[in-house]
Every structure is written in structure tokens, then in C-alpha cells.
Computed example of a mutant assay.
Amino acid sequence: MTTYLFPPPPVASLPIEGRAERFPVNRLFFVGRNYHAHAVEMGKPVDKSVERPFYFTKSPSTLVESGSEVPYPSETQNFHHEMELVLAIGQAGFRVPAEQAHELVYGYACGLDMTRRDLQLVARDKGRPWDLGKDVEGSSVCAPIKPLPGVVLDHGALAMSVNGQVRQQSNVDKLIWNIREIIADLSLFYHLQPGDLIYTGTPEGVGPVVAGDVIEGSVEGVGTVKLVVGPAE
């Protein structure tokens, strides 16, 4: 029997709609600038004809369930919301052709990629990694997974509000790189595994939140997500 100096952390996991079992989470992948209007608002327009998707990752320890309260993070004055459709991988795949991408899909969820925007932009402009801006404790919010095995979503209204005021509103059909393309491209770099989550990108309307704010979002046909921003520690 293996013994450890201190107890290892528990396996990160999420509830699954209609099932008692939980979805064990392996890795968290995020697609950057995957809606044209958001790319423009970030000052980095995307030309799909000459560019490929790009990605960043976060530790599974940043994962929190919908309905949680997370403290306003340290060392930032500009904490932003980013509402996203989350893809849950259920089958292993490497160098997967786009026409076979559906085979890897287990289901979908609503998610929030919470971001220290001020730190991210400083890092971006200096050519440094985004980790301090993105890999933030409690910043990967995810709702229960809706099983849709083999289904590739190509449309669905997406919306998000803060304290009841709509901030983000778009549709999954506006993704620059769609679900099939994301799976195919990411699988060129990684052996995708059951338990991987892919946050597929956020539309325009990202903005700051403060302690006490209540964030609520939805994706048509998938579900809803909620987060409460607590006081800074």
C-alpha cells in the first residue's frame, strides 16, 4: 500500500444530470478568442483563414461547482466574468479527424472562466505566460454535465447576467472554431482522455465584477450556471 506524507487532494469531479455517479475531471482546456466580437473587444481580431485555435490550461484544483461562492481573488483590481459552453470528453482520442469528433463527446455544461484581467493583459503585452491571470483559485466554474453522447452542438443561445442585468448574449453557432474543429485540432497536441473538459470560448460583453455580485448564465439545451462573488480574503 502506498503511503503519503500528507493526504493527497481528492479527485476533482462534477455531478451528472440524471446519474448518481460523478464525472471525474482530468484536465481543463480553454480555447482563447473563439468568438469574433470578443476577439475584437480584446483588441486581437482573429482571421481564421490564416490562424489556428490557441489554448491555455488551468489546474483541476481551480474547479468549483455552480452555486458556489468564491472570494474576490487577491492581487487584482479587475476580476472579469467569461461565460462559456463546456465540452466534456468521454472517450480517448488522438489525431481525431473532424468527422469523427462526435465519438469523443460525452456531454456539455455551462461554465465560467473567471479572470484576473489586469494581470492577464500585463502578461499578454509583455509576452509572458497568462497563469497569474487565468489559473486562479476558484476560477473554473462548471454546472452539472448534461449527457449528450455523440452529439455535436452547433447552435444554442448563450446568455449571462450580473445581478439580473444581461452582460453577455450570443449563440454557439458564432464560435470561430466549432466543436468538431476544436476536438480535431486539440487532439493533434494531446491524447484527449475521458474526463477532459474543454471550455470553448466566451462571446463579447466580458466585464468586471465586485464582491457581492451574483453571476448567472445559461446555454440553450444545456443548462444554467451560477456564481456568487464573496468578499476578498
Rank of each mutant, 00 (worst) to 15 (best):
P71G: 09
P149C: 10
E51I: 13
L158I: 12
H102N: 13
T115L: 10
P149G: 10
D196H: 13
T202E: 12
A20N: 14
G221R: 03
V70P: 05
V31N: 01
R52T: 13
G107K: 01
I198G: 06
M114T: 00
V152Y: 06
G93M: 00
N34L: 01
V25P: 08
L87E: 04
V166Y: 07
G111W: 00
H191D: 14
R116K: 11
P45N: 14
G90W: 01
I198Q: 07
P73A: 08
S139H: 01
V225L: 15
V219M: 00
L153N: 01
E17G: 09
D47E: 15
R22E: 05
E75R: 11
I198N: 06
G127Q: 09
M114Q: 06
Y108N: 08
A157V: 11
P194I: 02
F79Q: 07
G32W: 08
R124T: 01
Q91S: 15
G107Y: 03
C142R: 02
V151F: 00
M160A: 05
V122G: 06
S68C: 14
D154H: 14
N163Y: 14
H38L: 10
A39M: 11
L119H: 04
H102R: 15
V210K: 14
L132N: 11
F29I: 00
S13M: 09
R117P: 04
T202S: 15
T62C: 07
Y199C: 02
G217C: 06
R33T: 01
V86C: 03
D47Y: 11
L158C: 08
P15A: 08
G195M: 10
S68G: 06
G90A: 05
D154Y: 09
Y35M: 13
V228Y: 04
V228W: 07
R180Y: 12
K44W: 11
V152K: 04
E204H: 13
G205D: 05
L197I: 07
A92T: 08
K48S: 15
R95Q: 13
G223R: 03
S68K: 04
E51M: 15
I182M: 08
L85T: 06
V40D: 10
P45W: 10
D185P: 14
I179G: 06
F189E: 10
A101E: 05
T115E: 07
E220M: 03
G93H: 04
Q193F: 02
P10C: 06
I145E: 06
P53S: 10
Y35R: 13
P147K: 08
Y55A: 08
V151M: 10
S68L: 03
P73H: 03
S59A: 12
P10M: 12
S66N: 05
G18R: 07
N178P: 12
L5F: 12
V46W: 04
F29W: 06
P208K: 03
K146D: 09
K48M: 15
E204M: 12
V31C: 04
S13Y: 00
H38C: 13
D135Q: 07
Y199R: 00
G195S: 10
G156A: 07
D185S: 09
E99V: 07
G107I: 00
L148K: 08
Y72M: 09
P144F: 01
G90V: 02
L153S: 05
